[in-house]
Amino acid sequence: MKKLGLIKVAVFTACLLPFAQLLLAAFGLAGQSLGANPIEELIHQLGLWGLRLLLLTLAITPLRRITGKVWLLKLRRMLGLFSFFYVLLHFLSYAILDQGLNFAAIGEDILERPYITLGITALMMLIPLAVTSTNGWMRRLGRRWKKLHQLVYVIAILGVWHFFWQVKLDTREPLVYAGILIVLLGYRIWLKRKR
């Protein structure tokens, strides 16, 4: 049990490192920099970390099955909440820094730019999952909790799709994320079929 505590602290710290690095870079500290177009870079990095942590969250179940280490499940909520943290910052830096809280422009983006429509949909679906991630809500929702949290599969697909539609030309990187997601979801389908 004590060991799990240590692992949790380590994972928590690791999840905060990208945030710390971006914070330093935003203020040009410790030799870190966001480059010539800092807002674009910040939004991009926050989105990438949100997506990475989401895929990591989805990797917990397969990892637990394969390794048999049940304590891995105890990390899942933290990873999921960190994913939400980065995705929320991703959106806020877009809305505040990039768009200057110009709600008309943001609204137009959401309605007219398909990749932004996908992104905002994914974020909207993440919010109820983050809110109901507590033990209290788990108890209150009972069996429905699991049903609700299966939304994460849809969110992950939307997230990767959002990334894919956003790039101008080079689809290699989003395709890597899509490949990982296919493996993670495919594993679950395979598991279900086997039973």
């Binding site: 010539a36 820094l97 990039d98 200057g100 422009a105 007219e112 730019r113 990749y115 956003q166």
Partner: peptide, 17 residues
């Protein structure tokens, strides 16, 4: 895929409109 109505001016930092 994106609006051309406004532009991000490079070199104006994190908080410029």
């Amino acid at each position: 895929r994106w609006s051309q109505a406004r532009e991000r001016v490079i070199g104006t930092g994190l908080f410029a409109a």
